[in-house]
Every structure is written in structure tokens, then in C-alpha cells.
Write a protein that binds this DNA or RNA. Sequence first.
DNA 1: AAATTCTTGCAAGTAATTTGCAAGAGCAAG
DNA 2: CTTGCTCTTGCAAATTACTTGCAAGAATTT
Lengths: 156, 156
Amino acid sequence: MSRTHAHGASTLPTLSADTILDLLRGQGMRITRGRVAIISALLAAKAPLSLEEIRVAAGKRARQEPLDFATVYRVMETLEELKIVQKIHLGRARSHYELVDPHAHHDHLVCTDCGKVEMLDEPCPVEPLERKLRRHYGYAEVKHSLEFFGRCPDCQ
Amino acid sequence: MSRTHAHGASTLPTLSADTILDLLRGQGMRITRGRVAIISALLAAKAPLSLEEIRVAAGKRARQEPLDFATVYRVMETLEELKIVQKIHLGRARSHYELVDPHAHHDHLVCTDCGKVEMLDEPCPVEPLERKLRRHYGYAEVKHSLEFFGRCPDCQ
DNA sequence: AAATTCTTGCAAGTAATTTGCAAGAGCAAG
DNA sequence: CTTGCTCTTGCAAATTACTTGCAAGAATTT
Ligand SMILES: [Mn+2]
Ligand SMILES: [Mn+2]
Ligand SMILES: [Zn+2]
Ligand SMILES: [Zn+2]
């Protein structure tokens, strides 16, 4: 029951639940209801989620009691170490999480008024500078974090 | 005693202590030992400082008892509202602060190993995309936050 | 110098994690 | 299908990083 590419139309988000679960299995980790629910919630998310949002979304999707907050915290900590998810900072008190897209990352546009977060579908403009940081500054494993803030059309 | 551009050689960082203090005065605010010490510390800083770092640096520079943490917090809150300083997020637990450069902002390069922070003296590559977010996405007052992470030459 | 108003230190309060630990749940064996 | 070994989870307590209330103290004005 481990299809990797079998499904109908729609754009495929690179990572499937099975792919991720296999990754966990490969690390000797267990496939628990909580982890399955969390991964399902992340796959369905249209924007980065806070720990509390993940907790609620996972509970709904799996039609089960919401997980304990500490559990969500530790699952996300694990998924982050495995590079399956990444934590992002949107200028709020809480951190948010989203699945890593190994092929093409995206940056974010946050409305400073209503809090809406858009995932930008624009080519990332900083790759050249990133290369320069490697070549001329001598840095290794260079990554970046880029988010835009502004007032969305609805909020003006 | 309010020189705005009078001094010797060296590259001038746009904002002088007097300029800032005049700005505070203009808002009906008082020139206190603490504020003077904090501004002096910020002007001397070679990288963004955390509240605790500001507290210590300000104490040393003014050769006085370190300020209370809450005081530093409130002074920075005020300076931020006046757009004199800005808070930045370097992927750490604490926020960091630095003086705003009204002429040309800079982005940051953080070593994920030793924590060193470099202020990049490179043209910012995201202005075109920022314009597009205004024109085609309809966002107003668009700003951005961009930081790079990697392992510095010393840490490899 | 006195009055006025803004600031500060100190202590208490919050919000968001982060951790310890014993009970519970996967999963490989038998 | 039951057992045993380990990994996970829930619950409560601990931490970290702010954030706020308030009365004493300091900067300016009069
Ligand atoms: Mn990018
Ligand atoms: Mn920039
Ligand atoms: Zn909005
Ligand atoms: Zn380093």
C-alpha cells in the first residue's frame, strides 16, 4: 500500500505521506497515530502552521482527541531534524512550521494587518548573492530566510 | 554642542548620537543617562545586540551600574517606535536590535556554528520583487527581512 | 528651589516553549 | 496472537524571554 506517485490530477507537492513515513521508518522510528495525523495536516496546510494550529488540525483530520502540546512539539522537533519540515519566523510570538519543498523553496508574504500569509510563487531573487557568499565570503552550506511584510489589498 | 556632521575621518554611520537625542527631545522625551548609554552602545556595535547585550554594553560604555532589564526593554521599545532602531530575528531565541540605516539597509549573514553575525555590504537583491508585490499583488508598505545562514570559514 | 511629568528599578505576571518521568503503544520475535 | 524491547506520549513542572504595574527617582520647566 505504498504508492509513491500514483494518484489523479492536481499538482503533486513533491512529498507524499508515504514518502515521509518511509523516511521515519528508515530511522527506526515508529508510525504512530499522532505522527500520521500531523503529517496529514501539514500536507493539507495552505500556509505555515503554529504548534497549536498543528495540534488542532491534526486532531480534526484524524478524527481523534487532539494530541498533547508537548507531543506536537517533539514530533515537529524530530521532523525538523530530519529536514522534513522547517521552522519559519513571521514576526509573531509563535514559530510556524511547513513542509520543506526539496525542489524549489518559496518565500513568504505576510499581511501586517490581518496576518494572512501567502507562499510566493516567484523565482527567488537571492540565489546569486548566495553563491557569492560561498565563493567570496567562504561560507559553506549557505541558506537564507526571506519574508515580505505589507498590507494586503483587503486591508487597505 | 549639537554638531550633525562635524568630525574627523572614518565612514560616518548616518546617525549620530546628537541627531538621535534631538529626535527624542523633539518628542518631549528626556535625555537620561540610560538612554545616552544605550544609544552610545548601539552606535559602537559591530553586530545586532540582544537586550541583555545592550544592557551590558551600555553599562560598560557609560561606566555606570548596568540598567535594569525592564528599562532597556522599554527604551528599545521606544526607539523602535521612533524608527531609530529595528528588531531583527536571527533564528535564535532572543530578538536582536540595531540602528536603522535610513539610506541603505543591509541584510545579515549568520554563522550557524559560532553565531558570528556579519552585516552584508552588498546591494539588496530583492527590491525588484518588492516592487512586484506592490504592483501586481496590491500590497502596500512592503518591507522585507532577509538573512543568510551558513558556516563561516573559521568554523569549517 | 519647587512643581510637573516622564523614567526607572523592582517585583510580579505572561506566553511560548522545553524537559522529566512513568504509563502507553509500535513492532519484531516467538 | 502474545511477549518483550524500545520508542512515544500525556501530564505536570521548569525555563526562557519578555511584558506590565507601581511607587520612588530624575529631567525639565516655571
Ligand atoms: Mn528565497
Ligand atoms: Mn535586503
Ligand atoms: Zn490583510
Ligand atoms: Zn563561525
